[in-house]
Design a protein around this nucleic acid. Structure first.
Length: 632
RNA sequence: GGUCGCGUAGCUCAGCUGGAUAGAGCAACUGCCUUCUAAGCAGUAGGUCACAGGUUCGAAUCCUGUCGCGAUCACCA
C-alpha cells in the first residue's frame, strides 16, 4: 500500500505540487495508536512547494488520494500529519492472500547470489562458552534470514586446531594426566568426560604450572638471584622494576607488572617445551602429530555434541591446520605489484596510513605467516572453493573490528573486487551481572552447562503448570528442550547484535514478558484452538474490529521485516516483530470468543486469522533457530 | 595517547536513513480464570533520552566539545 501511494504521489507530483518531487521527500509512517488511520504522510516536505500551511497541504493531498486510490476510505489531518484510513475490506483481502501463501514472508529459494556465513571459529583447546553461544546463534540466524531473502547460503566454521595453545593442552596431558591401573592416561572414554572438557582441563592445568614457574622466577629476581637467566633478561627486569619506582598510577604499575610477568613467563621451561612441541608439529613429527590428532578428535566429538544440542549445522568445515600456510604467495605477488613493501629485515608490510589506519605486518622477517596472511589466503581460497560465491560474512566479536577493516582493505588493494561484499558481522561482548567473563578468574559460563540448566529449569516450570498429561516421556523431554533452548536463544538474539549485552541468568530462564516461551505459548494456544475447531470453513464478507485490523496490518508487514533483517543482519528485528505480533494476538484472543462465535463467517475469519498468526510465528521463530510446540 | 563503539524509566532493552505527547519487558501496585491453555489479559505508577553547545519549521536521532564506560592499536591468535 505504501509503495502504491508513493507511486501515485510521484506520478501526480506536477498536478499536486507544481513540480516533480524526490522520492525521499515522500515519507510514510505507521499512524500512531492515538490517532485514527492506518498510514500517515508527513506533509512538511511539501509545504514550501505548495505555498500553503501544513494543514492545507495535508487536506489537499488527502482529498486527492481519497479520490484516486481505491482502498483509501477516509483521512484526517492532525498537526500537519495526514492520517489515511484504509478500508477494512482491504485488510480482509490481505489476510486471504497471506493465507494462500504457504511461504508467506519468504522469497523464492536460491533466487539471489550465494553468500558464505562463517559463524563459529572455536579453538580446540577449550570448550565453548556463553560468548560462543551468542556468536553461533547469531550467525546461524543470519544465515537463515539470508536464505529467507532468497540467498543461497553456505554455512561454515573455521576450526582453530593448531598453534601454541593446542600444544599447551597436549603437553600438560602428557605430563600431568594420572595413569589408571592399566597404565592409561585420562581419555574421554575412561573418564566419561566430554572430549572438549577433558582437553580444556589440561589447558587449565598447563596454565597453573606455567604461572607457578613464572612466579618462581620473579621471586628469585626480586631477591637478586639472576643465575638462571641471561643478562638481557636481568637488565630488562631491572629496567621495568626501576620504571615502577615513583609511579603513582595503579594502572601504570599494573601494566609494568604485566610486562615483568610476561618476561618471566618467557623464561619458563614449560613454555619452551610447548614451543618445541609446536616446532615438532610443524615438522610433522609422528608422535606429536599422533597426539594432536587424537586430542583434537576428542574435542570434535565434544563440539559435535554441543552443536547438536544447539541445533546448528554447517555445510563446510575449514581447519586452520589446512589453511595456515595460505596467503604467503599472495603476499609475494602483492609485493611485486607494490601493494606491500619489504623492510630491511625482510618482513613485509602494508602502509595504510593514507586510509587512516596504521602500517600492518603481513609476513614476519623469518618469512612465516601471521594471522592476517592466513586470512587473506583463506578468503581467496573460499572463492576458489565456491566459484559462485558473492560474499562472505564473518561472525566475529567486535574486538576484531580493526582486523577486519584491514583485511577487507588489503583484499581490495590486491584487486579482489568481491572484497566489497565481505562483511564483518561484528557483535558485542556478553557481560555477566558480576562483570566481564574472564577465563582466568573462572567466571566463564560453559555452553553445555548453561543449556542443560535452562532445559532443566524448563522442565520444572512446565511440570508445575501441568499441560502435559498424555504426553509420552520422549515428547516431554523434547518439549523441555524446546522451551529451555527457545528461551536462551531468544534472550541472546532479541538485542541488537552490534551492542554489548548483559546476560542475566535469572532473566534468561524467564517465561513471561519478552521471552521465547511467551511466543511459544501463543503458538501452542493457537494450535490447540485450531485442533478444537475442526473444519475452519471459509469467509466472504465480515465486519472486523480494530484489533483484528491491527493484527492483519502487522502480519502484512512480515515480508518487509524479513527483508530489513537481512539488510541489517539483525535477528533482533525478527524477535521484536514476533513479540509485537504475539502481544497483538493475545489481546485479540482474550477479548473475543472464537469457537463459540455464532456468526459462521466471523468464526471462520477469526480462525483463519489465528492460523496465519501461528504460521507466521513458526516461520519467524525458525529464522532465529527456535522451534515452537503445539502444546505446552 | 591515537582510533572505533556505547551512554534512553530502579533493571534489561526498543526507538537512531530527523517528524506528533519517547515505547516495551522485568520489578512494584489494582483488577480479571463455572467460558477456546492465566506461561495470559486489562490497568496504575515510573524519564533532564550522560552533559553543554550547534544545524533545523522540528533533534533521543545529525554535527562539535566535555564527562563516564568498553574495545583496539603485537614479528599473539
Amino acid at each position: 500500500m505504501e509503495k502504491l501511494l508513493t507511486k501515485v504521489l510521484l506520478d501526480n507530483a506536477t498536478e499536486l505540487f507544481g513540480q516533480a518531487v524526490n522520492e525521499n521527500s515522500v515519507q510514510f509512517q505507521k499512524t500512531k495508536k492515538e490517532f485514527k488511520g492506518d498510514i500517515t504522510l508527513v506533509t512538511f516536505p511539501f509545504v514550501k512547494l505548495m505555498k500553503c500551511s501544513p494543514a492545507e497541504a495535508a487536506q489537499k493531498i488527502g482529498d486527492f488520494l481519497h479520490n484516486k486510490v481505491e482502498h483509501i476510505s477516509g483521512f484526517n489531518v492532525v498537526n500537519g500529519f495526514l492520517n489515511l484510513e484504509i478500508a477494512p475490506e482491504y485488510w480482509v483481502d490481505q489476510l486471504r492472500s497471506i493465507d494462500q501463501n504457504e511461504r508467506f514472508g519468504l522469497q523464492e529459494a536460491d533466487s539471489k547470489p550465494t553468500i558464505m556465513v562463517e559463524y563459529s571459529s572455536p579453538n580446540t583447546n577449550k570448550p565453548l562458552h556463553l560468548g560462543h553461544l551468542r556468536n553461533i546463534f547469531l550467525g546461524y540466524s543470519v544465515a537463515e534470514i539470508l536464505k529467507a531473502n532468497g540467498h543461497k547460503v553456505v554455512k561454515t566454521q573455521i576450526i582453530n586446531d593448531r598453534g601454541i595453545h593446542i600444544c599447551k593442552s597436549m603437553l600438560a596431558w602428557e605430563r600431568y594426566s594420572p595413569l589408571n591401573e592399566r597404565g592409561e592416561r585420562e581419555t574421554p572414554s575412561n573418564t566419561g568426560l566430554k572430549g572438549d572438557k577433558l582437553v580444556g582441563k589440561y589447558y587449565v592445568e598447563f596454565d597453573k604450572h606455567f604461572n607457578q614457574q613464572a612466579k618462581e622466577f620473579i621471586s628469585a629476581w626480586e631477591s637478586g638471584d639472576f643465575s638462571s637467566v641471561s643478562t638481557d633478561v636481568e637488565n630488562e627486569f631491572k629496567r621495568l622494576s626501576a620504571a615502577k619506582e615513583g609511579k603513582e598510577d595503579p594502572k601504570a604499575i599494573a601494566g609494568l607488572d604485566d610486562k615483568i610477568k610476561d618476561l618471566a613467563k618467557n623464561q619458563t621451561e614449560i613454555l619452551k617445551a610447548a614451543k618445541d612441541m609446536l616446532i615438532k608439529w610443524e615438522a610433522r613429527d609422528p608422535a606429536v602429530y599422533q597426539l594432536w590428532t587424537t586430542m583434537n578428535g576428542w574435542v570434535y566429538k565434544g563440539f559435535d555434541q554441543t552443536y547438536e544440542l544447539m541445533g546448528v549445522d554447517f555445510d563446510k568445515l575449514y581447519y586452520e591446520s589446512d589453511t595456515f600456510l595460505l596467503g604467503k604467495d599472495v603476499v609475494m605477488e602483492g609485493l611485486k605489484k607494490g601493494v606491500f613493501y619489504q623492510r630491511e629485515d625482510g618482513s613485509v608490510w602494508i602502509d595504510l596510513t593514507s586510509d587512516g589506519l596504521d602500517e600492518k605486518l603481513v609476513l614476519r622477517s623469518d618469512g612465516t605467516a601471521v594471522y592476517m596472511t592466513q586470512d587473506i589466503g583463506t578468503a581467496i581460497d573460499r572463492y576458489k572453493d565456491f566459484p559462485d560465491l558473492d560474499g562472505i560474512i564473518y561472525t566475529v566479536g567486535n574486538e576484531q573490528d580493526y582486523h577486519f577493516k584491514v583485511l577487507f582493505l588489503i583484499l581490495k588493494k590486491l584487486g579482489y573486487t568481491w572484497a566489497d561484499n565481505c562483511y564483518h558481522l561484528s557483535y558485542g561482548m556478553v557481560d555477566l551481572p558480576t562483570g566481564k567473563m574472564k577465563s582466568r578468574e573462572g567466571t566463564v559460563v560453559d555452553a553445555d552447562d548453561l543449556m542443560l540448566e535452562v532445559i532443566d529449569k524448563a522442565r520444572v516450570m512446565t511440570e508445575e503448570r501441568g499441560h502435559i498429561e498424555g504426553m509420552t516421556e520422549e515428547e516431554r523431554e523434547a518439549l523441555y528442550k524446546m522451551i529451555g533452548l527457545g528461551g536462551l536463544k531468544y534472550y541472546l538474539l532479541k538485542v541488537d547484535p552490534k551492542k554489548r549485552m548483559m546476560f542475566n541468568p535469572e532473566e534468561s530462564i524467564e517465561l513471561n514478558g519478552n521471552t521465547g516461551p511467551f511466543i511459544q505459548y501463543a503458538h501452542a494456544r493457537i494450535q490447540s484452538l485450531l485442533s478444537k475447531a475442526g473444519d475452519i470453513g471459509s469467509f466472504n464478507t465480515v465486519v472486523i474490529n480494530e484489533q483484528e485490523q491491527e493484527l492483519i496490518k502487522h502480519l502484512s508487514a512480515f515480508p518487509e521485516v524479513i527483508e530489513e533483517a537481512g539488510k541489517m543482519y539483525s535477528p533482533a528485528l525478527i524477535a521484536n516483530y514476533s513479540f509485537e505480533l504475539v502481544k497483538l494476538y493475545n489481546g485479540f484472543y482474550q477479548s473475543i470468543q472464537i469457537l463459540s462465535e455464532e456468526d459462521e463467517q466471523l468464526r471462520s475469519f477469526r480462525l483463519h486469522l489465528s492460523k496465519n498468526v501461528g504460521k507466521t510465528i513458526n516461520t519467524a521463530m525458525k529464522l532465529i533457530g527456535i522451534s515452537v510446540p503445539n502444546r505446552m
